[in-house]
Design a binder for these strands. Structure first.
Lengths: 299, 299
DNA sequence: TAAGGTTACGGCGATCGTAACGATC
DNA sequence: GATCGTTACGATCGCCGTAACCTTA
């Protein structure tokens, strides 16, 4: 057993068990990969892959179980490299942030600018995706830190830090009936609703609010992206329910935002990263930056 | 970086940072070890060991941090090997059990006999030590399973299964005043006490019982070993406080056992193993055996 | 001066690359 | 027949062992 065999297994998982693609990724020839896999399987004494003819099509139960250990080894190996680099120079490096559109546009700008000033040598990659995909990116090492509201609390491999609490707001054009007067769930439900896609940005709390009430509501458009929702609200399609911090007094002056905190439960945005993943110092500082930026804000 | 360098680091930790001893353990010459360490430190870019002249005397902070990852890699590597062996033949193998004298002598015999019948091909190593040492043995891979009452619940790296609850008993020679009549803490405290050493077999609960009462008690002899306590009780030195299951009606017929469950809080014997350590199937079955043996017993 | 660590060098073996072959869609 | 995987063989590079040297208790 050696580390390149371990690396090979990890890559095979990524490439749908293709030896030739794995060879490309490892910058060696296919035949070498083929032999290394044979050697490893021989050492284990049992096949790790299901084969159709010569093609690898899936992993055996043993292979799947061993893959957990392979992942652990790879993680530790990466941690050693990150630790070493961080020790030599904790001001340079790369930070992969995965988050949803709403956080990226309405929460992250300020802390990221601050962070850039402290760490001009750190290259930031920002990746937008659904909360489900964010978690996957953490697990596959494509992201170091995920910032979002939904789902991350369930995964036992993740360290989760609460970041800030916020509530939803309703947005309507200025002349809309809901622009004035008290708002209740019943009044809201009388209009078509535009809000976030399932699994995004506090959508679960919106569901919960209406589930507990007698009113049925009609979501005629859902999007991952606050700006899409705003666009269609402007076109008069109905009432938008968005995250409070996504309403911008200046840019959205043509819209009226109505507080919904008495109707929809509070949402909490969280910062998540793999427990087993060593974050370089600047990564740890970035998280602190997020938390302090969050406490300075008020929603 | 490669696996033998990782292995080298682990062994250096075990050998007090002696390159020559490490070389012996790895069955290669000293010079090879020296060079591999140099290569690894060069790759990391910083020294991992503090040196006095050429001698290694300690680890640097970076080295200590990296050692955590090294341990993770070694653990995963061992798991792969165990998984492979277990898959090929889950009836043969080795099981290292670490436990205290009391458990080894008064609880384990029955479940171990049962286990041997199911798995005649599994070699059992039994290791007696203090609870503190047991935990250390788990961490260093010298034991797979630890069985004891104290301490294990605190360690976050350990998976802990409750096994059975028991209470203490007082033992005295037949003609002793405490052989008859109701027993209170005050009456107990009037006699010299013989019991387990600090950190052993529910000793903490004995402490707790007397701490909460007004009586001061005088432990004139403490031992890790129930049999030692019995011996000196027989010699008339005082009252023994031992685990209830350590009193044997036949063998200890010359002694009288008095239930102390109303005076000393219940103790719980637990089974512990490393969360990250893959236990072969027979090991998992052994734990089940322990639990079922425990439920059949009554103390 | 003995014991532990480093440096230099030669030899062996592991692993890669080339290339021809085999199988699968 | 094009793509993917396996087998064979030669070449290279990494790693070990021997041996001489250096350093410290």
């Amino acid at each position: 057993m050696n580390l390149s065999q371990i690396e090979l297994l990890r890559i095979l998982q990524e490439t749908n068990f293709s030896l030739s693609q794995a060879a490309d990724k490892m910058h060696i020839v296919q035949s070498a990969v083929s032999r290394q896999l044979q050697l490893f399987e021989a050492e284990v004494g049992s096949p790790l892959f299901e084969r159709r003819g010569k093609k690898l099509i899936a992993m055996t139960p043993l292979g799947l179980r061993i893959m957990l250990e392979v992942d652990a080894i790879n993680q530790a190996k990466n941690n050693i490299q990150t630790l070493a680099a961080d020790f030599l120079d904790s001001n340079h490096g790369v930070l992969h942030i995965a988050t949803t559109h709403t956080q990226a546009k309405y929460f992250l700008p300020k802390p990221i600018v601050c962070f850039r000033q402290k760490y001009p040598g750190v290259r930031i990659y920002m990746d937008e995706a659904s909360p489900e995909q964010l978690i996957n990116k953490l697990h596959t090492g494509k992201a170091d830190i995920a910032i979002c509201t939904e789902k991350v609390a369930d995964d036992s491999y993740l360290a989760v830090k609460p970041c800030y609490e916020w509530h939803h707001a309703g947005i309507v054009p200025k002349n809309h009936p809901l622009a004035e007067g008290d708002i209740s769930l019943e009044r809201l439900a009388a209009f078509p609703i535009l809000t976030y896609s399932f699994g995004f940005t506090g959508r679960s709390n919106i569901e919960a609010a209406f589930k507990n009430s007698a009113s049925e509501f009609d979501i005629i458009l859902s999007a991952a992206d606050t700006d899409v929702i705003k666009t269609y609200v402007r076109l008069g399609l109905g009432v938008g329910i968005i995250a409070g911090m996504a309403y911008d007094k200046t840019l959205d002056a043509d819209l009226v935002a109505r507080d919904l905190s008495h109707l929809i439960p509070c949402s909490e945005t969280k910062i998540a990263y793999l427990k087993n993943n060593y974050l370089p110092l600047y990564g740890q500082h970035f998280i602190e930056e997020l938390v302090s930026a969050a406490t300075e804000m008020c929603f």
